[in-house]
Design a protein around this nucleic acid. Structure first.
Lengths: 200, 200
DNA sequence: GTCTATAGCCGGATAGAC
DNA sequence: GTCTATCCGGCTATAGAC
């Protein structure tokens, strides 16, 4: 006797849609694609979501939820400001290395996201850890523009990962340049001591 | 007597297609959209290009050509390694600020570009200036990983611009953070002296 | 070189049976 | 909650007139 296949709930559908949107973007994914990944027909999706927009927005909400908490964890390191920076960079880099889907969705939102969506991501995902980063920046470099410093720290980590597909073809590109230990070590040295410190 | 509207050549079409692809990506732009921007019917595009793929690839080739030369110019500054770095950062930042289309296309290629396209962009657009950057990196920070240093420099500049849409909604974000002078000053200080130097 | 017309497919979305 | 069937519009691409 065959057991009936368990019905899918909204969360299951969103979890299957997220990697598709990360891979191909909103316009690159059809309702049929999502249905096919879930193992149902496209029409059945409309029992769970009124339209594609809504499905997408809920998938984004789910993909970004709990990220704020992960980032907050990266800022719980204690000790001197230097130690806390090193700890944050290491944990944040490892987190981002493990989550290429999150990175792709963020990149796509930066390109295509409307005001409402970006505002929501800013306040619900990044605001809290960003404020903590600014506070740390102010300790490490008093008088500097804390906003720019916080962005610079994120830049160094995220752009190394974002450029991975093309760095393969640029001189000196090695596989180890994508490892979180290598990136976080480089970034920490650079932040603390400038170019002179990046071999530390 | 009305003068006949001048027929469009391939280059005119590509120049009109480039901003569309930058704005909405490959799947987000239809042949009708392009035709409409050009002022002709979609069918007429097929007189110039065999298919959409080819049109897109030629538009990319055109959007990226001559960029290598612009980057090379940024590296012609003479003087101490520090002066040359400062000069490069300033010129490169100004160039990138003025060309949001190029930045968007690059971001989209990093997300969606296949191996062949990325390899081509790497060798034809970035290779030469990248090598020069690595040489400069080696002077400024001998013994460091020049590849990582070159990427870090680009990161700092490009990510400040890439994140502009969301930085508006993050604490401390000001309009001046998008100005090339402000960015290049911050980046140069950070590179030369670490966080302590970014207020220089 | 551009047009009209159209083929043929794929997209989002709905109706109604089970 | 999922299905089949279907609508309709948009998509790429082609044929052939001008």
């Amino acid at each position: 006797m065959t057991r009936p296949v368990k019905s899918k709930n909204k969360e299951d559908i969103l979890d299957l849609a997220i990697p598709l949107f990360a891979q191909s973007g909103y316009t690159g994914v059809s309702m049929r694609d999502i249905a096919s990944a879930v193992g149902i027909k496209a029409a059945s999706l409309y029992h769970h979501f009124p339209d594609k927009q809504t499905l997408y927005l809920q998938a984004m909400a789910r993909a970004f939820e709990d990220k704020a908490q992960g980032f907050a964890t990266a800022l719980t390191v204690t000790g001197t400001p230097e130690k806390r920076l090193a700890g944050f960079v290491q944990i944040f880099t490892t987190l981002m290395c493990k989550d290429p889907e999150f990175r792709a969705l963020l990149q796509r939102e930066l390109l295509d996201g409307d005001e409402v969506r970006l505002k929501k991501i800013a306040s619900e995902v990044f605001r809290e850890p960003f404020v903590a980063m600014e506070a740390l920046a102010d300790e490490l470099a008093p008088g500097c523009d804390a906003h720019m410093v916080a962005i610079s720290i994120a830049s160094l980590i995220l752009y190394h990962l974002e450029t991975a597909p093309i760095r393969r073809y640029l001189p000196g590109g090695k596989a180890r340049h994508n490892k979180p230990e290598v990136i976080s070590r480089h970034v920490t040295g650079l932040l603390l001591h400038g170019l002179k410190g990046c071999g530390k």
